[in-house]
Design a protein around this nucleic acid. Structure first.
Length: 929
RNA sequence: GGGCGAUUAGCGUAGUGGUAGCGCAGCUCCUUUACACGGAGUAGGUCGGAGGUUCGAAUCCUUCAUCGCCCACCA
């Protein structure tokens, strides 16, 4: 074995082993394998994305699961891929186009623009894939998929056609969430409510009686063409009641006050609504009001009715609601109920059209708001303008307010809802943490149809063709001339909801599907529970007749150490690749996992990565220590030569195997990492390795060999336990230490990846090595003694490197090795067991389970200081005794408490009492003050 | 408006009824041939407040407070 360097240098090591794993095809999943299957599909990152801390968390967890499963002897498929991310990618390319060529996508035309997107994808896509490799992800890259791959596209179409034929997909003119920035419809899930500071305006309108035929204040407008519409389009003047007969308008001298936050929509109002139960206004229902805007229209063309509607809350505002059916969802519903005309005054891009009047036409909706307020003021109609905060829906992607808009879109009535809801409710599919099950259930219960069409070009085009009034839905254009394909594309999630099976070659690749579907685990953030998880479950049931995964692990959200969300604008998101370059991928992984409890947000601190780096170095040096003792890998442990210390560390290892395995089975990655960390650093390195030093400094070659065997045993197990967390360094050490040599290829000879996951020792093993729990107690007593001894050194202010002499008052023969070990641990040049020892004055003493421990110093001690310290300790002990006694003397306590607890308390009392007498004696020993 | 989560040492976090743990930062000592990315020791907590259940509460219940998230058509 090659000699290890003094400090671990991850950079070269990591690249080398990753290439080795690829060369050896270690990540490739074989559907023909007889091994039981473990499968997991990656939440596909955006193809043009770059790795951030959220990915690190998410993919480290998946990698741990995949690597653990391999060591458990499973045939593992971790299926990777990327997502075309419709809006995000199209937006990015369009922005670049604007910047570099000063052109819009319309200037290029659909075909040319799509070419540019593909070029962009070829150039920037896949960066994140390379970054995942740097992190150590063991994905089967031979199966890497992209949601725009030809066969994936085909699957999306197939599903669309199928759902269309089932009558679940339909086209309809509905109120949708319209994003004026990207000029497309969005699903409800893509709208984010944000509190916005604005104003609440109160304005007056005149109530009039209309005799004769009331003129329509407008008629239904056609939805403008979805894509490429420009300001001013659709602004046809269709308002007046021409040819409807004579009309008389009579003033009533009554005025109503209306409250609104959106005065710019006044020209689009086609009614005013009041609650019919509202006694203030009920008598006005059926009369009309004169809409104040547009100012230039004659008053008889601005008469709109007062309607009664239960929806109106008379507590809110003035109790009078202006109804804008074309630009508000609730108003649209009111409009439907009262057959009100729709008057569209806002264009697709958020500007006002000609129907809004000459004052507003052409202005952006927010500029128009200011102008509208000015107009109301000029008309003397404006009563009040006060600051107001309300919730406004924002486009999640473009971060601009949504404009509710009536348009022709494709909708999906969700399939397999009942089955999807049941599998989680009945616990057949498990959520970790399970509180998300409630959130999921609530969403499914209140589910609305999904608007799946987008007015974009980058994506899966709707597989529907039109010819006049004919509509055809199918995988190919129908035969015959004159068919025009629907220009819209589908929501990105309409492709990713098929991810678990579409990536496995559905429907043809039955071998892979049979072996690996349903997948075992899904690891994702709770922020996409509706977008993705719920929809995948529905698609899974609809197309595979089976849930797509058995367990869903929801990670926390990574925040900075002040608890703020990571964001580009805040600049608080560290670049994982820089961290990897600085500390190593293992360090980043370990640091992240150690501070990532199940279902909690994670406050990220670079210190955690530093801790991971330090730990890797510790692991490295512990192996280096073993290596420096020389000798080949020692396979057999000689039972009769085992020391108590050896048995102790083997027992501790056994417990750690159990703890780690349990923690991983429960998806408690932080607990697993903490258990391993504690075992290795605090028990193996800090205590066990120290106890071996007297052996290695000695001359007994048999004992040396046996101790080496124990070191090798513990290290080879520990490396395997750490491998899922620290794939690179464990592989390097696995080979560096020569542990691979004992194993056949398939079990770790080739790579630690396939070495068997350690199992707790069975009864036979424990019997053979006489691993009795009494060795734990013995070692605990030894630790206590050593700690006490070290305390005494500190009390006497002795430098840590000064050799001293200790005396233990006890009748007991320790083994020579134990004596040596205690000398080393206490850094003493003498350690005597003297049953009749009488300490001279100026001797520090400590009370240990094994007896009184003395540090004779003869005059070196400040007696007064020591007396003060002991008196303080005495007080503490008396306090503790009082506490325990109070409990024990409570009759109810003795009656109700289980015997074990009672015994424990009694034991504790005894211990305190013996400490008490020791301290009292020690004070006496100091002599009078 | 409804739901969910959080509140433990300066900071971060573990701990689901029986003596409050860990990491970082702090302080003291130590370059003792695995490791200063280290070792030894030490200080620091009425477990957010108030009630209650219990022999016993960080833990269970009620309530309040603060923070965060999700859902909801109040103009």
């Amino acid at each position: 074995m090659a000699e290890l360097s003094k400090a671990y240098e991850p950079q070269a090591v990591e690249a080398r082993w990753y290439q080795h794993w690829l060369d050896q095809k270690c990540f490739v999943a074989d559907p023909a394998s007889p091994k039981p299957a473990y499968s997991i599909v990656i939440p596909p990152p955006n193809v043009t994305g770059v790795l951030h801390m959220g990915h690190v968390l998410n993919n480290t967890i998946q990698d741990i699961l995949a690597r653990k499963a391999r060591m458990d002897g499973k045939e593992v498929l971790w299926l990777p891929g990327t997502d075309h991310a419709g809006i995000a990618t199209e937006g990015m390319v369009a922005k670049q186009l604007r910047k570099e060529e000063k052109k819009s996508k319309q200037d290029l035309g659909r075909e040319e623009f799509l070419k540019r997107v593909w070029t962009w994808k070829e150039k920037h896509g896949g960066i994140i894939i390379e970054q995942l490799k740097k992190l150590g992800c063991s994905c089967d890259w031979t199966r890497e998929r992209f949601t725009m791959d030809p066969d994936y596209v085909r699957n999306v179409q197939r599903v669309f056609v199928d759902l269309y034929k089932k009558g679940l997909i339909y086209r309809g003119k509905r109120m949708v969430n319209w994003c004026p920035a990207t000029q497309t419809a969005l699903s409800d899930e893509e709208v984010e409510m944000k509190p916005q500071k604005g104003f609440m305006y109160h304005f007056n309108v005149e109530v009039v009686d209309v005799v004769g035929q009331p003129p329509p204040a407008g008629k239904v407008q056609q939805a403008p063409p979805p894509a490429g519409s420009t300001a001013g389009e659709g602004a046809r003047m269709t308002t007046t009641g021409e040819g409807t007969g004579p009309t008389t308008v009579r003033s009533t001298d009554t005025w109503l006050t209306i409250a609104t936050t959106r005065p710019e929509t006044i020209p689009g109002d086609t009614a005013v609504a009041v609650n019919p139960k509202d006694t203030r206004y009920a008598h006005l229902i059926g009369k009309h009001i004169v809409r104040p805007l547009p100012a230039e229209l004659p008053r008889e063309q601005k008469l709109i009715p007062i309607v009664g509607d239960e929806h109106v809350d008379f507590e809110f505002g003035t109790g009078v609601l202006k109804v804008t059916p074309a630009h508000d969802k609730a108003d649209f519903d009111i409009g439907q109920r009262h057959k009100l005309p729709l008057l569209e005054v806002i264009n697709a891009d958020g500007s006002m059209n000609a129907l809004a009047g000459s004052d507003l036409a052409g202005l952006d909706r927010f500029a128009a708001r200011k102008v509208a307020v000015e107009k109301l003021r000029e008309l003397g109609s404006l009563l009040e303008e006060k600051p107001y905060e309300n919730n406004v829906g924002f486009s999640q992607r473009a971060d601009v307010p949504i404009e509710p808009r009536l348009s022709e879109q494709w909708f999906l009535k969700y399939p397999s809802v009942a089955a999807s809801q049941k599998c989680v409710a009945e616990g057949r599919m498990k959520f970790y943490p399970d509180r998300w099950a409630k959130v999921y259930d609530h969403w499914l219960t209140n589910i609305q149809d999904w608007c799946i069409s987008r007015q974009l070009w980058w994506g899966h085009r709707v597989p529907v063709w039109y010819r006049g009034a004919e509509v055809f839905c199918g995988l190919e254009a129908p035969p015959g001339e004159g068919w025009q394909q629907d220009p819209d594309v589908l929501d990105t999630w309409f492709s990713s909801w098929l991810w678990p099976f579409a990536t496995m070659g559905w429907p043809e690749n039955t071998e892979t599907l049979k072996k690996f579907y349903p997948t075992t685990d899904l690891v994702t953030g709770p922020d996409i529970i509706f977008f993705w998880v719920a929809r995948m479950i529905m698609a899974g049931y609809e197309y595979m007749g089976e849930m797509p995964f058995r367990n869903v692990y929801y990670t926390g959200i990574i925040r900075d150490k002040q608890g703020r969300k990571m964001s580009k604008t805040l600049g608080n998101s560290p670049d994982p690749l820089e961290l990897i370059a600085k500390y190593g991928a293992d360090a980043l992984r370990f640091g992240t996992m150690r501070s990532a409890p199940l279902g909690q947000d994670i406050l990220f601190d670079e210190k955690d990565v530093e801790l991971g780096r330090n730990f890797c170095n510790k692991l490295w040096n512990a192996c280096r220590f073993r290596q420096m003792q020389g000798g080949e890998v020692q396979g057999e442990i000689e039972t009769s030569k085992l020391r108590g210390d050896d048995k102790w560390i083997l027992l501790r290892l056994n417990q750690t195997i159990k703890d780690t395995s349990h923690a991983l089975a429960d998806y408690k990655f932080n607990e697993a990492a903490a258990a391993l960390y504690r075992f290795f650093w605090s028990e193996y390195c800090d205590w066990y390795v120290e106890t071996t030093k007297p052996i290695f400094h000695g001359t007994d070659e048999v004992k040396k060999a046996n101790t080496l065997a124990v070191l090798d045993f513990v290290l080879s197990h520990t490396l395997r336990l750490f491998h899922p967390f620290l794939p690179f360094i464990t592989e390097e050490l696995w080979h560096g230490m020569g542990y691979h040599e004992d194993m056949p290829d398939a079990q770790g000879g080739r790579t630690i990846m396939f070495a068997p996951w350690p199992k707790p020792f069975d009864a036979d093993f424990r019997d053979h090595y006489s691993l009795d729990d009494c060795y734990l107690d013995f070692f605990a007593a030894k630790q206590e003694l050593v700690t006490n001894g070290r305390n005494l050194r500190r009390e006497a202010n002795l430098p840590a490197n000064k050799k001293v002499k200790f005396v233990l008052k006890r009748e007991y023969q320790f083994t020579p090795n134990d004596m040596e070990v205690m000398k080393v641990l206490l850094n003493a040049d003498a350690f005597d067991i003297l049953p009749d020892y009488e300490p001279p004055q100026g001797t520090l003493t400590a009370h240990c389970e094994w007896g009184e421990l003395y540090l004779p110093l003869e005059g070196l001690v400040d007696l007064d200081a020591e007396r003060t310290r002991l008196t303080k300790e005495l007080e503490k002990i008396v306090n503790e005794i009082a506490k325990v006694e109070q409990k024990l003397t409570n009759p109810a306590f003795a009656q109700k408490v289980p015997p074990a607890v009672l015994q424990e308390h009694q034991q504790r009392l005894t211990d305190w009492h013996s400490k008490l007498s020791h301290v009292q004696k020690a004070i006496e020993g100091l002599g009078a003050a």
